[in-house]
Design a protein around this nucleic acid. Structure first.
Lengths: 258, 258
DNA sequence: CCCTAACTCTGTACTGTGTACGGAGAAGAG
DNA sequence: CTCTTCTCCGTACACAGTACAGAGTTAGGG
């Protein structure tokens, strides 16, 4: 029913990875011409992840996709972890530059919507942690654009950072539940409705799970289910949450103004 | 540098798993006395995950921890996926019942703080998806308590659900970045500062990564770094975000009231 | 009381993962 | 032409989840 894990990397020396992210000019090459480029590997990995899961990105499968032996990938990429880092920055490159002249509210809304769309194009982005990996050019640009949206509206630097985290975090969680669910539908072959149809009678047979013990849950769950035709509607939760968050920020901004 | 993944389950029939969650009375037993109980297995798995990672929860290691062969675990638990589900509900059991008589704002704050603490006690909770798994008694109770905090303050049922998702989602994202980072420090053996010390000169050697290209990022990044003595301060982001979100909810509530 | 059905537990084995290691061949530097 | 450096590959290892079949243990039915 559930159980998604997050595995981390724990790399030692960041040098090589950072150089790859920024596309170092390439040291003096002596040996045979490489068949591929690092970008080829990244593109293949992204294609696999898009089509399926982050779990589909195995060194063997990426290699097969490129018509190359698994071990030769290590010429272009230090390991799987660094490949994931490169994939992240690659995907961040799809985020457009901000439209100039928008107010902070419209700018933040645009950013949130773009990231929402990005996550739906590349669901694997939500299966991967980004703690120390946001060091590529596109990730830098992403952060820069986010800050630009709230620059000069009366917040101090620390608040600007926190506001940006708040909005991007909202997008992440709501998109995550949207896409976790979509993935479950795919992998289990059951829609939410079908799954509930099977789960409901089991629960009904358990006295302790009676609706009387959970009055609010059953009332609200039913109402939400009817309103959305599903157990959850992450798109609604996203836009509802964004409206609340923006209102909350607005309160702070106008407080700072006086 | 980064690369945490989330793996999902995709189980077929939820019956057995739900029965385990709710502790079915146990069918007529004929064979030899079991050495263990399902609860033993869950406790051992939680202990392993607490001490380390969700990745530390392998069937082999749990079995070893219990002095039993790996395959015998399958007597108590259908598979690793369902074990994770049981772990989640087990952890949710640590969330206290709400203090009665609090206003919605205080109640939501208490809930958020309790979940923040729970995630820090059981970081692996953030490494695991919960899409369709919140069907255990403690997860039910969690949702019920969350709804109770905002019941009767003028929101409709769908809004209540969305408000609750908004707050719990905030806790999840901010706690996640807090704990992803802590785990990275552990696994890499480098603090944030040490890591930046190593990464900074590499970045400095790359013309395109110059501060001039990212004026806001470098200004804000430096200010945030000095204010927090770290690249990030998730605890601040959490409390700042919570204040904004509550303000945003307040705006909606008072709008509904008139 | 014994036999048999039901149950627990275990050893072995299969597929799949990331990647360390060593060797084979290609191509530029001298 | 030779040497050094590089790319690429085959093999191998440790570890994962768990299918399967068998050995041993217990309680119910006769």
């Amino acid at each position: 029913m559930a159980g998604v894990r997050t595995q981390d990397n724990g790399e030692g020396d960041p040098r090589r990875a950072i150089e790859l992210l920024w596309g170092v000019p390439a040291p003096p090459r002596r040996g045979p011409k490489p068949k591929l480029t690092t970008a080829d590997v990244v593109r293949a990995a992204v294609a696999l992840a898009d089509a399926d899961d982050i779990d589909a990105v195995t060194m063997r499968r990426v290699a097969e996709h490129l018509g190359v032996s698994p071990m030769s990938l290590y010429t272009y990429v230090p390991g799987r972890t660094e490949l994931l880092d490169l994939m992240i920055d690659h995907a961040h490159g799809e985020l457009p530059a901000p439209e100039p002249g928008l107010g902070w509210r419209a700018a933040l809304t645009a950013i949130a919507e773009q990231q929402w769309a990005l996550f739906h194009r590349h669901p694997w982005l939500l299966q991967v942690t980004t703690s120390r990996s946001a060091l590529g050019p596109h990730s830098f640009a992403k952060y820069e654009h986010e800050l630009a949206a709230v620059d000069g509206i009366g917040l101090d630097d620390v608040e600007m950072d926190a506001v940006v985290s708040l909005v991007t975090g909202l997008v992440r969680t709501t998109a995550r539940s949207s896409l976790d669910n979509a993935r479950l539908v795919r992998t289990s072959g059951m829609t939410d409705a079908q799954w509930w149809e099977r789960a409901a009678p089991v629960l009904a047979g358990i006295p302790a799970a009676d609706a009387a013990h959970y009055p609010l849950s059953s009332r609200v769950g039913q109402a939400a289910g009817e309103a959305h035709n599903a157990a959850e509607n992450p798109a609604y939760t996203f836009r509802f949450g964004l409206a609340r968050v923006l209102d909350g920020i607005e309160a702070l901004v106008s407080q700072r103004k006086q």
